[in-house]
Design a protein around this nucleic acid. Structure first.
Length: 588
RNA sequence: GGGGUCGUAGUUCAGUUUGGUUAGAACGCCUGCCUGUCACGUAGGAGGUCGCGAGUUCGAGCCUCGUCGGCCCCGCCA
């Protein structure tokens, strides 16, 4: 079909164009047929322009315009005109003018869409995902993807300017035993063998360091076959980075700079550096989370010293078993009803707490079902430690250290919500959490697992503990946290074969197993590995937070549902038998 | 793997508590009228597998069981 190329896009025309002859292409957004005159808002990703079909200007085109419907794709020619006095629409940048049409070409008709292509029409997410190509026409989603584009560009500019090289790594790689479940890809050429999709390009980027690339980055898709969340998809995008001849502080500095740059260039916001740094233990004790939200205070206090000699059995057990007693002050909540307190007790029980101790602070002391177990000194010390005032409410949990702190952290977030302390427009709170434990004990398999990954270096001063007390070893691992979201994580790596061997041993790998799984990396390390370390940013999550969305699906063009299905193209799907046969696969 | 919640015109929802006549509303859609609208107005009209399947019942959108799907959370996510 013949049509003229546009002279302008639909967000472009201003009063300065009045009198010009223009060609516009786009989609019919809305049509208002007043009988004698027809107004159409023409839409493309640049904006809206009102075009007018007027019989006195061109009778034939006006008649043709009667046929237009929503989402028709058209090309029009006409003259830019100032809108008559009083009919301007300041809501649109192009609202001072309209285009009098004298030539209309309908490039494509369209079925009535299942939902209006508009920001303020609610359509269920299910429907939006099924018709994602229509959903993506909505200005809001387009705005999100444009922001994402800006993030890509600012990121690449930053790394280029700082001496990083962008290198692509394989998408078909070797399956590794640790960490998330791999997505497997069967090999046709090698019967019974499988590739894995990368959970991250971790080992490749370390090998690039051995190869001397010194500074590497990649904006890369990663795959983890785990269950989804609002901020988690099975395939997602990382800004993956690795550097040689650096230390942890150097990493902090470099990526504070990146974060600052992104805020400035994409949002025009100034953030202060350096960021606050908390150790993992501090973060857990004060906020009950390794990704604390610091937009509000509500700091937890460890009360082991207050109740160190307590006769209250629950507390006594916690102290004796090296557990924790942790307290949270809920200011002004002293009047919470028994029912409200029961709801909160259920809340913590659901996530694993044995129970919840609550205490009302009064003018003349404290009031609580457990008060009779406390000595006067304990009561006094408790109120003092938490800085409690009459009218406040105190919560106490006790039990296994990190688990209990984590539950109190959840309660902290819940109370912040109830007290309306989380303001969406508050300034971004960024911090580093560092000194993560190197290992995590797993009761089911009765062995240690690497909390970060098996290539993470312990703190130098903790290396000796690896043999005697692995649980106490801290890693040179760090997360970057934004408003309670983990947006990046990384570590300084082991670059010494001997220490790596020690690590594998602590994880319970035999030498043969280690060789079989990671041998190529170990081999590479024998040929002169530089000290190195890196970090990876969760790019989708970062885009989500920058655009103020609550789900990463809003910043991914074609996302999966919570059950990892793509509603638009109906994947995953069954495949033909002959495909399976070629791949030597039999479905049970 | 577990918990919560939702599923009714094209869409968003009401109706389910207490089973009972022809399942409603708004928007959208279609047709007529309308020359300055921008949530156009106006008159009329069409449009339903109450997610699906069993069961209880004289009778099920409503009750029971199962199942499928969306969303959120726990586990999981080096």
């Amino acid at each position: 079909m013949k049509f003229n190329l546009r002279t302008h896009n639909n967000g472009e025309l201003r009063e300065s164009h009045i009198g010009q002859r223009v060609v516009l292409n786009g989609w019919v957004d809305t049509r208002r047929d007043l009988g004698g005159v027809i107004f159409v808002e023409l839409r493309d990703r640049f904006g809206f322009t009102q075009i007018v079909f007027e019989p006195s200007y061109n009778e034939q085109t006006h008649a043709e315009g009667k046929a237009l419907r929503s989402e028709y794709v058209i090309s029009v020619e006409g003259t830019v005109r100032k809108r008559p006095e009083g009919t301007e629409n300041p809501a649109f940048p192009t609202g001072m003018v309209d285009v009098l049409v004298d030539r209309l070409i309908i490039l494509n008709e369209a079925k009535t869409p299942p939902f209006a292509i508009s920001d303020n029409v609610d359509a269920s997410e299910e429907l939006r995902l099924k018709y994602r190509y229509l959903d993506l026409r909505r200005p809001k989603i387009q705005k999100n993807l444009i922001l994402r584009h800006k993030m890509y560009q600012a990121t690449r500019r930053f790394f280029d300017e700082n001496g990083f090289l962008e290198v692509e790594t394989p998408v078909l790689m070797k399956s590794t035993p640790e960490g998330a479940r791999d997505f497997l890809v069967p090999s046709r050429l090698h019967k019974g063998k499988f590739y894995a999709l990368p959970q991250s390009p971790q080992q490749y980027k370390q090998i690039l360091m051995v190869a001397g690339f010194d500074r590497y980055f990649q904006i890369v898709k990663c795959f983890r076959d785990e269950d989804l969340r609002a901020d988690r998809q099975p395939e997602f995008t990382q800004i993956d980075v690795e550097m040689s001849f650096i230390n942890q502080d150097f990493v902090f500095e470099m990526f504070e700079k990146l974060t600052k740059t992104l805020y400035k260039e994409v949002l025009g916001v100034d953030v202060q550096t350096p960021f606050l740094k908390l150790t993992y233990d501090e973060a857990m004790e004060k906020y009950g989370s390794d990704k604390p939200d610091l937009r509000f205070d509500l700091e937890m206090k460890t009360l082991n010293d207050v109740f160190g000699k307590s006769e209250f059995k629950v507390f006594k057990d916690a102290v004796e078993s090296k557990g924790v007693i942790t307290g949270l002050l809920a200011p002004g909540c002293g009047e919470y009803t028994r029912n409200q307190l029961d709801v909160l007790t259920d809340f913590v029980k659901k996530i694993g707490a044995g129970g919840l101790v609550w205490i009302r602070v009064k003018e003349d002391g404290i009031e609580a079902p457990v008060a009779k177990f406390f000595t006067d000194d304990e009561k006094k010390a408790l109120v003092e430690k938490l800085g409690a005032k009459p009218g406040d409410l105190i919560f106490i949990l006790s039990g296994k250290k990190y688990k209990t702190l984590g539950i109190m952290g959840s309660l902290r977030l819940e109370m912040a919500r109830r007290l309306d302390m989380i303001k969406d427009d508050s300034e971004p709170k960024l911090l580093w959490v560092k000194d993560f434990p190197l290992f995590e004990w797993d009761d089911d398999t009765q062995r240690y697992y690497a909390m970060h990954h098996p290539f993470t270096s312990p703190r130098t001063e903790d290396i000796l503990l690896m043999d005697t007390d692995p649980g106490e070893v801290k890693a040179q691992a760090y997360d970057l946290v934004l408003n309670g979201n983990e947006i990046a994580g990384g570590s300084i790596r082991i670059f010494d074969s001997e220490l790596q061997g020690k690590m594998f041993k602590a994880l319970g790998f035999t030498e043969e197993e280690a060789k079989e799984k990671f041998g190529f990396l170990m081999n590479a390390f024998q040929y002169g590995a530089p000290p190195h370390g890196g970090i990876a940013f969760g790019f989708d999550r970062l885009c989500m937070l920058f655009s103020g969305e609550k789900s990463i699906r809003e910043v991914i063009a074609f996302p999966k549902t919570a059950s990892a299905i793509s509603l638009m193209d109906d994947s995953p799907s069954l495949v033909d038998d002959h495909q399976l046969k070629e791949l030597h696969i039999k479905v049970r």
